[in-house]
Amino acid sequence: MKTLQYFLLLAFLGILVGTVIHLPPRGDIDSPVHQTVNPAGTLVAGTYYIQHAYKDTKTPNMVVAVLADYRAYDTLGEVVIVFVGGIACFFILNLRRRKP
């Protein structure tokens, strides 16, 4: 059983390494993530944020501008997940009114 697990892990490592060497290299300015326009002609979000974040929100920290304005719905999800974690821990562990 353990041999099979190690074999699976090694195979997974091989596949992953074989995949990542086809990605754009680290720090490459020409990778699709850093372009201004897609091959299909639509805007690329990251560059748009750099160019417009200060003008749109007067917030110099672009990460906060993206987090709380452009992608505020994700942040809502983040807050809710913190809330879910709290409620779930309470649900699992509270013993306050439990009879022995």
């Binding site: 750099i50 452009y70 942040t75």
Partner: peptide, 27 residues
């Protein structure tokens, strides 16, 4: 780092690291 700097301006996006993955990874 992706914090607006008056010396660099915003015309040249090569001056700042892409902020989108950072915002997502905070989540």
């Amino acid at each position: 780092i992706p914090i607006f700097d008056k010396r660099y301006g915003v015309e040249n996006p090569e001056m700042y690291i892409n902020p989108l993955p950072h915002a997502m990874m905070l989540t």
